[in-house]
Design a protein around this nucleic acid. Sequence first.
DNA 1: CATCGATTTGAAGATTTCTGCAAGTGCTAA
DNA 2: TTAGCACTTGCAGAAATCTTCAAATCGATG
Lengths: 112, 112
Amino acid sequence: MSVPLYQAKAELFRTLGHPVRIRVLELLQDGPLPVRDLLAAIDVEASNLSQQLAVLRRAGMVTSYRDGPLVMYALSTPDVADLLAAGRRILGAVLTDRDALLDELRASGTDR
Amino acid sequence: MSVPLYQAKAELFRTLGHPVRIRVLELLQDGPLPVRDLLAAIDVEASNLSQQLAVLRRAGMVTSYRDGPLVMYALSTPDVADLLAAGRRILGAVLTDRDALLDELRASGTDR
DNA sequence: CATCGATTTGAAGATTTCTGCAAGTGCTAA
DNA sequence: TTAGCACTTGCAGAAATCTTCAAATCGATG
């Protein structure tokens, strides 16, 4: 199987591996937003947000265009929203498993 | 909204952001496998594979158990397979968009 | 008990990613 | 054309991640 394929998949996921980038994508699920609004919602420095937007742009997950004085961002494909949804599901599954394990550990005595 | 939630989501995706880890998860989709087999399939050093398996374990995406002389690994939840599938879909969407863009660029003349 | 195959752990150096600051570009309005 | 938002870019230092080597563990076997 093609090695670069795994590389591409890994890069895709790595692109999502940052809290600010995740937030941006979630905010864009409901439609395009100007940087100004993202900035107001996320609590990060403007230059930092811009860097993260550049990462998302390079990965092809968002597109941007200028609207008068504002720069607007939008998801490049609605599939991105699906991926986020899948992520939420897994997170739920993994966290419950983990909690279940924790409970089990607690129940089996304090030591060993 | 809770800040740690975005953190958790980002960590989940970051866990997938490595070619070896992606391959491991894909190989485990069809059922548990011993490290020995993963090693034969992936072409990476044993200690490196072990490090990556540890990352997946800490993230709660796989579980392991010993079977005689071998250590077996398995997906901790089938939801993981869904996430990989979603990733494949997006990758397809993003790459076609990108190719379409490339084609467009090519069609519009060799220079700018 | 000494060893061997299978796997994990620890640690260090190399590489990548993150963050914030200073400076720069693009538009709009006075 | 000067001024002022709205963003982006270039960087440098800090922090996190990767990769590999050497050493340690765990079972099974001679």
